[in-house]
């Protein structure tokens, strides 16, 4: 028999993360179709006020404890395991984010349930839960069936509309009590200690506030080529940003990174040069006003989110483009 669905509410510094609403929205749909309750759980320190925002769920379980400031994945898995067993939960959705990384695999290991990462879609067909997981950086999708509708699923951010998970309705809130807490061998589980937040390095510019962004990826090939792109940025009055590989190479500072670990940007123009468009990058730029992309690979996923695409070597395009923009401005 199918049990309830549980959404792990994700929050950072007292703010509910969008992924929580995404999961509540799709979770509601699944729960209604399967005719099972939808529950959500909030674990943390000083987080009780968050629960009232989760009205799409039938009930919200809250464990608010001073020791739960940024709990480790071990502690989260231990607490969730107890809750899942007590409430006979069948299906658990967890955010596929950096904050929640590791909880899903640990929980699946402890509960002996299957785990699916990178989930982009979830549905019910013939009373059976199916899902689509992305593989190989989004180049391949895989449809998977969960045995007995039981499992732990990590939901890729940006896969579902967050609005479907928002409601003014007040959920029934159940404060979890200490017996649950004490059943966890905390001494064993708190080996990982959260020390402090490290604030974003203050960059020379804030890329989230720019109207025009020129973004570079692996295709830039080496650091010397950045000068040419800078020339374009100057001509357009825009700023330079990049995908992960460029930042990891140390060619641009962390403050210029667009994507999952970096910034989410919505400029009027996003001109991407030599970026393939891995999902982690697309997540941070897909809502830009006008997206123009240059890439040598005609099948690059970046063309799927761009308004205009140019299948060419960026070095064949750049000099002419700079020249033309300069000429146009001086006309």
């Amino acid at each position: 028999m199918q049990g309830p669905i549980l959404i792990l509410a994700e929050h950072l510094r007292g703010e509910i993360a969008d992924i929580t609403y995404e999961m509540l929205g799709v979770g509601r749909k699944l729960a209604d179709e399967l005719k099972v309750p939808l529950h959500s759980v909030v674990l943390g320190k000083d987080i009780a006020p968050i629960a009232s925002h989760l009205g799409v769920a039938d009930s919200v379980f809250v464990l608010d404890h001073p020791q739960l400031d940024m709990p480790s994945s071990e502690v989260m898995a231990a607490l969730l395991k107890t809750l899942i067993e007590q409430k006979h939960i069948s299906l658990v959705l967890i955010g596929g984010t950096n904050v929640s990384t590791g909880i899903g695999p640990k929980l699946s290991y402890r509960l002996n349930l299957p785990f699916v990462n990178f989930c982009r879609n979830l549905w019910v067909k013939d009373a059976s839960v199916g899902l689509t997981s992305q593989l190989f950086g989004g180049k391949i999708l895989s449809d998977v069936r969960l045995p007995d509708n039981r499992g732990v699923v990590s939901v890729y951010p940006g896969s579902f509309p967050p609005d479907a998970g928002k409601s003014d309705r007040k959920p029934s809130i159940e404060m979890l009590d200490l017996p649950l807490w004490e059943s966890i061998p905390l001494g064993e589980e708190t080996k990982v200690i959260f020390k402090q937040y490290l604030e974003p390095e203050a960059g020379d510019i804030d890329i989230t506030k720019q109207d025009i962004l020129i973004s570079i990826g692996r295709g830039i090939a080496n650091a010397d080529n950045i000068a040419l792109v800078n020339e374009l940025a100057d001509a357009l009055g825009g700023a330079l940003c990049a995908s992960r590989p460029v930042i990891d190479q140390g060619w641009l500072p962390l403050s210029r990174q667009v994507g999952k670990s970096g910034m989410t940007v919505k400029p009027k123009l996003y001109l991407s040069l030599g970026i393939s468009g891995a999902p982690e990058h697309v997540e941070g730029m897909k809502d830009s006003g006008l997206i123009i992309s240059v890439n040598t690979d005609p099948n690059a996923p970046i063309f799927g989110v761009s308004h205009y695409g140019i299948c060419a070597d960026l070095f064949d395009i750049l000099p002419t483009l700079i020249e033309e923009i300069k000429a146009h401005k001086s006309e």
């Binding site: 989004g138 449809d143 969960l146 992309s293 799927g304 989110v305 205009y308």
Partner: peptide
């Protein structure tokens, strides 16, 4: 316990309009 039903290549949604021709035409 997972059963993979199929692998497939995603269809690009909102596929970009491709600009073609020599660099001068494109720019």
């Amino acid at each position: 316990g997972l059963s993979v039903e199929r692998l497939f290549i995603p269809e690009a949604t909102g596929k970009a309009e491709m600009l073609e021709g020599p660099p001068e035409t494109i720019t």
